[in-house]
Simulated assay, not measured.
Amino acid sequence: MRFLLVFLVVLVLAWRWRVWRETRRRNTPRTKTNTPKSIGMVACHHCGMHVPVHDALAGTLGQYCSVAHRQHCEP
């Protein structure tokens, strides 16, 4: 009979510890994952394709995705 009582006490304590641990895990705010920063995009004046700002070629009429498109639109 004594072993049954000890077993029940251990079982109740284990159950309470598990409930406490789950509620603490749910209430802990999640850390934000490191998302890459967005980069600026511009559309090519000739074909409309979007390219990153640092890869775009500047012209007098706008931004271009390649030298060929800049030469085609600007004489």
Score class of each variant (00 low, 15 high):
M1Q: 09
M1C: 12
R2K: 10
F3N: 15
L5M: 11
V6Q: 08
F7L: 10
F7M: 05
L8Y: 05
L8R: 10
L8K: 09
L8Q: 13
V9Y: 03
V10E: 00
V10M: 05
V10L: 13
V10G: 07
V12K: 05
V12T: 01
V12S: 03
A14N: 04
W15K: 00
W15G: 13
R16H: 07
R18S: 06
R18F: 01
V19E: 09
W20M: 11
W20I: 06
W20P: 02
R21N: 05
R21C: 02
E22I: 15
E22Q: 15
T23R: 15
R24Y: 04
R24D: 10
R24I: 12
R25W: 08
N27D: 11
N27F: 03
T28F: 01
T28W: 04
R30F: 07
R30G: 09
T31P: 05
T31W: 02
T31L: 10
K32C: 00
T33R: 14
T33F: 04
T33C: 09
T33M: 10
N34E: 12
N34D: 10
T35E: 14
T35Y: 06
K37L: 12
S38F: 06
S38T: 14
S38W: 09
S38G: 09
I39P: 01
I39N: 00
I39C: 01
G40W: 12
G40Q: 14
M41E: 11
V42L: 07
V42I: 03
C44N: 09
C44E: 10
C44H: 04
H45M: 10
H46C: 01
C47A: 07
C47F: 08
M49P: 00
H50Q: 15
H50A: 09
V51H: 08
H54M: 04
D55P: 00
D55M: 06
D55G: 00
A56M: 07
L57D: 00
L57I: 15
L57Y: 01
L57N: 06
L57H: 07
A58R: 15
G59L: 03
T60D: 09
T60F: 00
L61K: 15
G62N: 07
G62C: 13
C65Y: 11
S66G: 07
V67N: 07
A68V: 04
A68C: 00
A68L: 01
A68S: 09
A68Q: 07
H69R: 05
H69A: 02
R70W: 06
R70H: 06
Q71F: 01
H72N: 05
C73L: 14
C73P: 04
C73I: 14
C73H: 07
C73D: 15
E74T: 15
E74K: 12
E74F: 11
P75L: 12
P75C: 08
P75M: 06
